[in-house]
Write a protein that binds this DNA or RNA. Structure first.
Lengths: 122, 122
DNA sequence: GAGATAATTCGAGCATATTGGAAATATGGA
DNA sequence: TCCATATTTCCAATATGCTCGAATTATCTC
């Protein structure tokens, strides 16, 4: 991940409405959420939503596909993972204090964390 | 971490100059870096730097202390950790695809990752 | 084709952010 | 006290971002 991409993503997420949209899409899973459903859920005007979806899309954080009359948006997991990795680079290469508390979060998720042999001491 | 705090941090980091400053401070370690050294390293005007340091400080990402004529800035590791944790909340509670690749980063860092018994299968 | 629904694009007005020069404040040393 | 250094604050110009109403495009159904 280049610094320029990271700046675009961070600035896209540095907006209350857009962060809410993105978190909704992440929770929405791979199937995605229709633009209209997002607008109704978050109670925002459709044109404002469209503008913010466009910004998130240009930042590479979300992708869209048409399905009939609706346009379905979904979070780009690779991009999000890349951004988190970028932010962690500095810390884990020199400043473990930041990453340390995150280990449990990562490990606590199902399917997340470093591969541990089942039944091992992990 | 509240959503409002996360937005402030993300928007503070969503700026090329400020992201460079923050990364420099993270790499700078707990001892911190003097404002003048930051300005010289990144080749920015002192007043612009001061404004950006102020924004990062208000976002809670950095702290400062005076030392003689210099003011030393350092990254707030708890805040950074909190932000990363906030961004991970969604993914690891439902969308492990995002967190999975991060596990190796966290685990690869010295002192990072879930506690594993030395010599275990981890 | 006509009408309804879903979403986007356009454009104006307003607010906020960014930049850089100049002046002000704080500290340490002669 | 006087001067040099370090940093911040003030200010104005410029640029960018945000919001909202209205019009436009795309799709489906009848």
């Amino acid at each position: 991940m280049e610094s320029k991409s990271a700046v675009n993503m961070l600035s896209a997420l540095g907006h209350e409405g857009r962060l809410a949209i993105f978190r909704l899409l992440v929770r929405g899973g791979p199937d995605g959420v229709a633009a209209g459903d997002i607008a109704r859920t978050l109670n925002v005007l459709p044109n404002s939503l469209s503008a913010n979806l466009n910004i998130l899309s240009h930042a590479g954080l979300i992708v869209s596909r048409r399905e009939g009359r609706s346009i379905i948006y979904s979070a780009d997991y690779d991009a999000m993972s890349g951004l988190l990795g970028f932010l962690m680079e500095d810390c884990c290469n020199g400043v473990p204090e930041i990453c340390a508390p995150l280990g449990s979060i990562v490990a606590g998720a199902q399917g997340c964390g470093p591969a541990c042999a089942p039944g091992s001491a992990c």
